[in-house]
Design a binder for these strands. Structure first.
Lengths: 149, 149
DNA sequence: TAAATTTCGGATAGAAATGTCTGATATATG
DNA sequence: CATATATCAGACATTTCTATCCGAAATTTA
């Protein structure tokens, strides 16, 4: 099986988008997120803890507690979420798995893949939660997908 | 951890490139490939079997046996190897993990990611073993990387 | 201050991917 | 035809990722 992001990273991205679509000052709890997005609750807990540690989210314990964005949505790029969960190895590691692969010692697809990888990074780094929130507001389809009614 | 291709797929790509760099009519055995490329031998065996089943490679048992390309190198694209090992889900599955995601029901990054994915496919489908063999012939660095002396 | 709620942290369990082992099967060579 | 070589096939082991469980800590509310 080939995949771009780990399942945990997919959960993280979905959850951050869900949280970002809530009222900005409100803390959203795990129970709600896991039920709406159909993500196993304890695993989502671990995942959101990672995002808190990486200062993507802010948490609050106790009644009315939960999670909200740690920064304004235009300061959180998708890349920050991916970085917190999966790390950034995919930006530098060789797509063919050669351990010593660099521009000075390239694999047979080094330059081809490098160009594509740069585009992936550009997309992830430039796309912010604010951008996506705007799209969500403008699209009923997206609200449905994120279970926002 | 995020990765584009599974480790098994990386092994497969490396092995096919190694085989393609050998004399065309010769069968190359697993022992040689696994030692040169530092791939666990039994696992490489399973992997090459998959490539035989998908008609990327041809095998021969017994003395002087081993593996060689099943078709002329200009008829084998990198995509065929990836397809045989990892499959093609990455071309259609949602990068955010939403199960129902399509152009009619897109996720927040559907179009952005779709464009990138198309480029990845283009690269994999257009790059053939013959293309790479030529590069290898022209580059001492590549021969070193593939342990071809 | 007591009780209820919710995240946090560590230990454990299950599933999937990766890696290993053993014997069977086929082929070349003497 | 016997032997050595190499792939093939299935079972098994290990590692990594995903998922679960339980109790502790913090915060709100009554």
């Amino acid at each position: 099986m080939s995949l771009i992001f780990s399942r945990q990273c997919e959960y993280a991205l979905q959850a951050v988008l869900y949280i970002s679509a809530q009222e900005e000052s409100k803390f959203t709890n795990i129970i709600e997120i896991s039920e709406r997005l159909d993500i196993p609750m304890p695993f989502l807990g671990k995942t959101l803890q990672l995002l808190v540690q990486h200062k993507v989210l802010q948490s609050l314990k106790g009644p009315r507690g939960g999670f909200k964005l740690a920064k304004p949505p235009d300061e959180i790029a998708l890349f920050h979420v991916v970085d917190a969960i999966d790390g950034t190895d995919f930006l530098t590691s060789c797509v063919l798995g050669f351990s010593e692969c660099s521009s000075k010692n390239p694999c047979p697809v080094h330059s081809d893949w490098g160009a594509l990888r740069d585009r992936v990074y550009q997309m992830l780094a430039s796309k912010t939660i604010a951008d996506i929130s705007k799209e969500i507001t403008d699209s009923k389809q997206l609200r449905t997908k994120l279970r926002l009614l």
